[in-house]
Design a protein around this nucleic acid. Structure first.
Length: 866
DNA sequence: GAGCACTGC
């Protein structure tokens, strides 16, 4: 390790000190190895910039906060927790003497919300700011507000490796930018000369070929980046089967592997090594000895889709910044090579940075935090990057439904980017006493709300445990083998009411077994994950006690607990569509599939605490996880207001909690009128709708899940309420609509009822024999309706794609697939993101089959056609 | 025939 004084950052020392002193704000742009994280806080201290106060250094990861504190304490020459300390969730080493405090992002944000003057803090250093975490963005914005309004003496330093400093400089103006060099070895970056389509040439095959090439001309270890566990296992298989790579040992590396396997991947060997890893190796783990990186350029990226209110986990192309970060992994100990599995041309078209978290996560928790700080107009909060309006609206709606916000008035909106500019109003929502109470609980507002409900139902301890179980990573591994599953069934018993209960038993078991590694492995329990539960549980119980909730130990009342879950997740209600499959209908008529590891396999009605659209093996599925069975009668008990005013419209009472109550009513009315679009809507319904619109209880802004709704809405309103100003549909609207068909599963469902499917059926009838000739592939339609696979790659049958293009102005791919004989059309959104439309053609095939059977038997005699 | 990146209060 170099002497601190030799670190490149010291070249900037004088200028850093001068800038902070003059402006109170500074941006330091310096890569890994410059020493910024350890030295800049010490500079502030040693040059007397802190007065009597302390500097708080923000870190995105707990491990980093702890390690940095330890190192700086050594450099300063005091014990950890003395002059230099750290504070992370559930662990801190600080004292009265502490002047440099390393903290994780959530710690500072919470400190800000409970002490907005930041007493005792003289400076805040935002380290690794380029990662653009949600809490980092919010903390910086709040710090600026606090500096401007109350604390002009507060110093703010933002540090980062790579950064869009232009945007940030404007945001922090007046503010200087200082740049330093790093201490890493050069990495030679190579691109493919020709673009590869991973659909034809799988990513693992391409990666293995490049490994073979690069291994021959380097001497160190290889690191291969893949988007996830599945792609990793395929790559490992290919590498192990490769003749040219037979001298290498090869290890998978991802977050869900047990610790011993992770250690095995990171350990040093006598032979050369290939590690195939996810993004863990990009930021969280460093691996020594790597001199070559093979980067597939993809990652699974978590987003929150505010239009549909669900999480997504889809494979996306990584940004330039992220691929540079990956390349850098080859140059830590010696000069290195990085092979990128895309072309230089493609590289130039990639985004420079990842989208910051504010643009892609659920904002409910931070919106509540801001409201508590008295910031009611969150749209005009000084965001470094403004979130989508829909995202803010979704967060506010949820918080209102949870009782954390209430409507305090209506304001006319200046915002005119929607179809109903004339009637646009912003609902002014303020925090309620319940909302303030919820904020005491450091967790998603849904769980905080469950705590408050638990007080009424006498099950605070259970809810505390449930919240703790879901905070960290999922510790009950999926896809376990049969023996593990049997061991689980034996020990945890059969459970049919809630996946939470199963998790509780698994945790209790691990806790009783003292987190014994063998016991955990036998049951497929992730040991680091399950270890975090106990301390969190304790923390939540302490908070509950401080909030005067009754935490007495009682017998667990399953019904009470399940009702609390329903209160927290009422908008995640789902109903099984049939008993044969795991398909479910969700509120808002969306579709999803019950997780196959869920223990709620029988219940017709359930709520899912996690809804995630996941891409894997070329498919996208909406999966319902962490489910709890609920009773239909509870809905009436818990949400009586939903059952009080049907207004002449027929509802499905179990599915009617779709949006906020008023909006929901409006939506149902619109759907109702759609069926009789040529006539005015039913009188009573019309009256309610008109009244609500006029009273401003319904804000006509976003209502466009599908073409039909939009058009019907416009038609209805224009025809029967001429006093409303309605803008005609523009080309821009149309583009939005197409995008929504492509993005929204609801839109996709609507597509199914449109002429596409009939066209498809016609086409199949006319051309089925031709299809068989040209395309009938690996697996055939079996007479008994089992396994069938008929796959078109690319554009699909020309007739069909032309028709889809004509109808929707989008291009499509086409698959006629497996099992129950379903048809999938994959439509590509303007940004190339695919969405699949599926239709079940089992019955259709059943009818058609006898007609084509003779021909099939003649052409494919090797198969049995029953 | 089948489904999962990483953090954080």
């Amino acid at each position: 390790m170099p002497e601190p004084r030799d670190l490149p950052i010291y070249e900037l020392e004088d200028r850093i000190v001068a800038a902070v002193r003059a402006q109170g704000r500074l941006i330091v742009q310096a890569p890994t190895g410059s020493g910024k994280s350890t030295q800049v806080p010490q500079m502030l201290l040693h040059h007397g910039l802190l007065g009597q106060g302390e500097v708080v250094v923000l870190q995105p990861r707990r491990l980093a906060a702890r390690m940095l504190a330890k190192r700086v304490a050594e450099e300063v020459g005091t014990r950890l927790g003395d002059v230099v300390g750290y504070q992370i969730r559930l662990d801190s080493r600080v004292s009265e003497q502490t002047r440099i405090r390393f903290v994780t992002e959530g710690i500072l944000l919470r400190q800000m919300s409970f002490d907005p003057t930041l007493r005792g803090i003289s400076a805040i250093v935002f380290d690794e700011f380029h990662e653009r975490h949600l809490y980092g963005d919010i903390s910086l914005a709040r710090a600026l507000q606090i500096q401007q309004a109350q604390r002009p003496d507060l110093k703010i330093v933002v540090m980062s490796a790579t950064l869009d400093t232009v945007q940030l400089k404007g945001y922090l103006a007046p503010c200087e930018v200082l740049t330093s060099q790093g201490r890493t070895f050069p990495v030679q970056v190579e691109y493919l000369s020709k673009s590869v389509d991973f659909e034809h040439d799988p990513v693992w095959a391409v990666a293995t070929r490049e490994c073979e090439r690069v291994a021959a001309r380097t001497t160190g270890d290889l690191l291969v980046f893949m988007p996830g566990a599945y792609e990793i296992s395929r790559t490992v298989q290919d590498v192990q089967g490769s003749h040219a790579l037979r001298g290498f040992v090869c290890f998978p590396l991802h977050g869900e592997l047990p610790p011993d396997q992770q250690d095995r991947a990171v350990a040093r060997y006598d032979t050369r090594k290939i590690i195939v890893s996810t993004n863990v190796a990009e930021t969280s783990l460093t691996i020594d000895g790597v001199t070559a990186v093979v980067d597939c350029g993809l990652a699974r990226v978590a987003r929150y889709d505010p239009h549909r209110g669900i999480n997504t986990l889809l494979i996306e192309k990584i940004s330039v910044a992220s691929s540079d970060q990956r390349a850098g992994r080859a140059g830590r100990t010696a000069p290195g090579v990085c092979v990128r599995l895309w072309t230089e041309n493609e590289h130039a078209r990639r985004p420079l940075q990842e989208l910051p978290e504010v643009k892609r996560l659920d904002l409910a928790e931070v919106v509540l935090t801001l409201k508590a700080a008295g910031i009611d107009d969150i749209a005009n909060f000084p965001w470094l990057e403004k979130p989508e309006p829909k995202s803010l609206e979704r967060a506010e709606t949820l918080l209102e439904d949870l009782g954390a916000l209430h409507l305090a008035g209506l304001e006319r909106s200046d915002n005119v980017d929607h179809a109903f500019a004339g009637t646009a109003q912003t609902r002014l929502l303020k925090i309620t006493p319940v909302g303030r109470k919820m904020l005491r609980f450091p967790m998603h507002p849904r769980y905080a709300r469950m705590f408050l409900a638990a007080q009424d139902y006498g099950c605070v301890r259970s809810v505390a445990l449930m919240a703790a179980l879901t905070q960290g990573r999922n510790f009950l591994l999926r896809n376990v083998d049969k023996r593990t599953q049997e061991a689980r069934d034996d020990l945890f018993g059969e459970e049919h009411e809630s996946d939470f209960f199963l998790l509780m038993r698994a945790w209790r078991y691990a806790d009783k077994a003292n987190y014994n590694a063998d016991a955990c492995r036998r049951l497929g329990i992730h040991i680091q994950g399950v270890r975090q539960v106990g301390p969190l549980y304790e923390q939540f119980l302490e908070i509950a006690q401080a909030e005067k909730l009754d935490v007495a130990e009682k017998r667990i009342d399953g019904v009470a607990v399940r009702k609390c879950v329903l209160l927290g997740f009422s908008d995640h209600l789902a109903r099984r569509l049939d008993q044969g499959t795991l398909r479910c209908e969700l509120v808002h008529k969306r579709k999803g599939v019950l997780a196959r590891e869920s223990c709620i396999q029988e219940a017709p009605l359930l709520v899912a605490a996690e809804i995630t659209e996941i891409e894997s093996r070329g498919e996208v599925n909406t999966l319902l996880n962490l489910c709890t069975a609920v009773e239909e009668a509870w809905l009436k008990e818990l949400f009586p207001e939903d059952f009080s005013d049907a207004g002449g419209v027929t509802y499905d009472p179990t599915m009617r909690r779709v949006l906020a109550r008023k909006e929901r009513k409006f939506r149902d009315l619109v759907l109702e009128s759609k069926q009789t679009a040529e006539e005015p809507p039913d009188g009573e319904a019309a009256a309610i709708l008109a009244r609500e619109v006029m009273a401003g209880n319904i804000v006509l802004t976003e209502w466009n899940e599908a073409v039909e709704q939009w058009i019907v809405r416009v038609n209805c309103l224009a025809k029967w309420w001429p006093e409303l100003e309605v803008n005609p549909i523009t080309d821009a609207d149309r583009a939005t609509l197409i995008e929504q068909i492509c993005y929204g599963s609801h839109g996709a469902r609507e597509l199914k009822d449109k002429p596409v499917m009939p066209v498809l059926r016609d086409w199949l009838l006319a051309e089925q024999l031709a299809v068989l000739d040209d395309y009938l592939p690996e697996r055939l339609v079996m007479a008994n309706g089992r396994k069938a696979r008929l796959t078109y790659h690319k554009e699909g049958p020309p007739v069909l794609s032309a028709r889809i293009q004509e109808l929707y102005g989008v291009s499509s791919k086409f698959t006629l697939g497996h099992g129950r004989v379903t048809v999938k059309i994959e439509v590509l959104a303007p940004n190339q993101r695919p969405i699949q439309v599926t239709d079940d053609l089992s019955n259709f095939w059943k009818e058609q089959y006898p007609k084509i059977k003779p021909e099939l038997s003649r052409r494919y005699p090797r198969h049995e056609w029953r």
